[in-house]
């Protein structure tokens, strides 16, 4: 237990040896990367919608234009969460609000 506490203290001391701005910037870059993990969800959802509509177009080629239109609309709505993640990542990278708190 003693060793572990020493390790944590050593780690915190190591962190404190950097400038705060550097720490915030590094953490923001990691956070931007982590935020973009949200891209998995819209990817799966849009792929599912595209697969289903391909199935439907194969079954009824006559209705292709309306099926494709509804698919694009649904995919656009499904994309929203991914776009939110992108906005968070862009804000962290280019318009960081945390730097103003220093």
């Amino acid at each position: 237990m003693e060793v572990e506490v020493n390790f944590i203290v050593r780690f915190l001391n190591w962190l404190a040896s950097f400038e705060p701005k550097v720490l915030v910037l590094a953490a923001s870059a990691i956070g931007a990367g982590l935020a973009m993990i949200a891209g998995i969800g819209p990817g799966i959802g849009q792929g599912y919608a595209a697969g289903k509509s391909t199935e439907m177009v194969g079954r009824r080629p006559k209705h292709q234009s309306s099926v494709v239109r509804v698919m694009l609309l649904g995919q656009a709505v499904a994309q929203t969460t991914g776009i939110y993640a992108l906005i968070i990542a862009l804000v962290l990278m280019f318009a960081n609000p945390l730097l103003k708190l220093l």
Binding site: A76, Q79, T80, I83, Y84, L86, I87, L90
Partner: peptide, 11 residues
């Protein structure tokens, strides 16, 4: 979401 969708895609 409407505004950010367009902005996010283009940007």
């Amino acid at each position: 979401s409407l505004g950010f969708r367009l902005f996010g895609n283009i940007v």
